[in-house]
């Protein structure tokens, strides 16, 4: 006897709809396109194992976003620890290595924004990334993060305020560098 397997069409539909969302989230949290791609594949393989567990596409989407967010934060924390260890040993800030991906991002502003995002505290960065790149409203974000909608509203606001400060500091710093 054979039990019919869940349709691969379901997987494909969810993949087409959710992949761009979780890719943007992973990229904005980790700052690396290659890492984001790897994490998205990992998330979808986990989803592959339980594709018939979700009653609808939205539930699958929220689950995938949650998994990707957690994987991305783990990577971001590891990278941050490694960078700090490097700085302790060599007593100098580690410069971002020029990689193929950096060559792709030619717009200086894009890099600045990405680096400013990385400097946000984890809680603020996560909620802002979910808002700006996850295509989610406050209720959905609160459900994914397990916090109240009011808390989401406050964190989004604080994240924007902090991000504006960081970008402003960077701009002033650049002006100072060019002036000298």
């Amino acid at each position: 006897m054979q039990r019919s397997a869940p349709s691969e069409d379901t997987f494909r539909l969810v993949y087409d709809h959710v992949y761009p969302i979780i890719f943007r989230i992973a990229y904005r949290i980790t700052g690396s396109v290659d890492v984001a791609e790897e994490l998205c594949q990992e998330a979808f393989i986990k989803y592959y194992e339980r594709v018939d567990m979700f009653p609808d596409r939205d539930q699958a989407k929220y689950w995938l976003i949650r998994v990707t967010k957690n994987l991305s934060l783990n990577v971001a924390k590891r990278v941050s620890r490694e960078r700090k260890a490097y700085e302790r040993v060599y007593h100098e800030p580690q410069r971002r290595a020029k990689t193929g991906e950096d060559e792709l991002i030619r717009d200086e502003e894009a890099l600045e924004v990405q680096e400013a995002l990385q400097r946000l505290p984890e809680k603020l960065k996560t909620v802002l990334v979910l808002k700006e790149y996850g295509d989610l409203n406050y209720r959905e974000i609160s459900s994914i993060l397990g916090i109240t909608e009011g808390n989401v509203k406050v964190r989004v606001f604080r994240a924007r305020g902090r991000l504006m400060e960081i970008l402003k500091e960077d701009t002033e710093s650049d002006r100072g560098t060019h002036a000298t």
């Binding site: 890719f23 894009a110 970008l167």
Partner: peptide, 14 residues
């Protein structure tokens, strides 16, 4: 500013 720069080559990577 945040939304101006999308992920590079997203469709190809998909």
């Amino acid at each position: 500013t945040l939304q101006r720069h999308d992920v590079p080559e997203l469709q190809a990577r998909m």
